[in-house]
């Protein structure tokens, strides 16, 4: 497959399917709550509606206010280019792209938090402070996982680290360590995507929110970009988990692997829905313990394969 068609296929997969995930999560939660719930495609309708709305903009804000929403889509899209989707190889791959992948989300965080502070609202300031504080602890955890995968794969490119052929060898030999890495990654994915047990995307009390409170003032197309961006982010970060846990008894067929990857993404959304339904949000002071603890698990795993 040449680069151009790969690029198009890869991006289309992401751009078209990502909004499914929040829908599945919401549906799962509705099922557990004994409700019928919104249709799975709700986010597509929402996005279409938000696109055609006029924005309400506070006079306090400046151009920074719009950089946050723009990056919310641009960053996951750029980062996704370094991630293999099942059998579809990453269109951009080079040694060290894993670090770029992680740091791109740092850029997003910088401007999302800045856009929140741009409104001058104390609540949004609170959310921004929490977001940047908790992410500091998630980043070392991700890096430990990357080091671990890099050591196993002998390469520092996400494509090599997450290649199904490579993982098929690694799982039987280092299953426990990879399991630890998987748990860490899952916790990070939940934290970075503002999910229970770290954050509650559905709460309506500004004081307890982290991510949602930062986007309170956005409206219209800008809010649409943010909603779409968070779906993309869930797909991209969740992609790490899915790609890592693809079973070793994988077919070598390209199309089948990719289909399996998509199914894995949907399953992950289901899993997140279940976690959200059965768990309560942690009290904020306990969140650092969760993130540090998950990082320590990865550190422990890394030591195990180093010895």
């Amino acid at each position: 497959m040449n680069l151009l068609s790969l690029l198009i296929l890869h991006s289309l997969l992401l751009l078209l399917l990502a909004p499914l995930l929040p829908g599945i999560i919401a549906k799962t939660k509705a099922f557990f709550g004994g409700r019928k719930g919104a249709p799975v495609l709700q986010l597509y309708f929402d996005l279409n509606r938000l696109r055609r709305k006029g924005m309400v903009v506070s006079p306090t804000t400046s151009w920074i206010f719009f950089v946050g929403p723009l990056l919310a889509v641009a960053v996951p899209l750029t980062a996704s280019l370094m991630l293999p989707f099942g059998g579809l190889a990453a269109p951009v791959r080079f040694g060290g792209d894993a670090i770029l992948f992680v740091y791109l989300f740092g850029l997003l965080r910088f401007f999302t938090a800045s856009a929140a502070l741009d409104t001058g609202s104390a609540f949004e300031g609170m959310g921004a402070a929490r977001e940047v504080s908790f992410s500091c602890l998630a980043e070392p955890a991700v890096l430990l996982v990357l080091l671990l995968l890099g050591r196993l794969a002998g390469s520092f490119s996400l494509q090599q680290m997450l290649a199904p052929q490579q993982l098929a060898v690694a799982w039987p030999a280092q299953g426990v360590t990879l399991g630890l890495a998987l748990v860490t990654l899952l916790v990070v994915v939940l934290a970075e995507n503002a999910r229970i047990p770290v954050d509650d995307p559905n709460t309506h009390l500004e004081l307890t929110m982290i991510h949602e409170v930062m986007v309170l003032d956005h409206s219209g197309p800008a809010l649409g970009l943010i909603e779409y961006g968070s779906a993309l982010k869930l797909w991209v970060l969740g992609g790490l988990v899915v790609q890592l846990s693809l079973p070793p008894l994988l077919p070598t067929d390209l199309a089948a692997t990719t289909l399996l990857f998509i199914a894995g993404q949907l399953l992950l959304a289901l899993l997140i829905g279940i976690i959200e339904s059965v768990m309560a949000r942690l009290p904020l002071p306990r969140v650092p313990a969760l993130l540090i603890g998950s990082g320590l698990l990865a550190a422990f795993g890394l030591i195990l394969i180093l010895r």
């Binding site: 992680v102 800045s114 500091c136 998630a138 070392p140 890096l143 550190a299």
Partner: peptide, 19 residues
């Protein structure tokens, strides 16, 4: 990971200063 922590903390610090 310490380097990653430094990076994360620096983001927190400069969001604070800039904001």
């Amino acid at each position: 990971p310490a380097l990653a922590l430094i990076g994360g903390l620096a983001v927190a610090c400069f969001v604070k200063v800039f904001g």
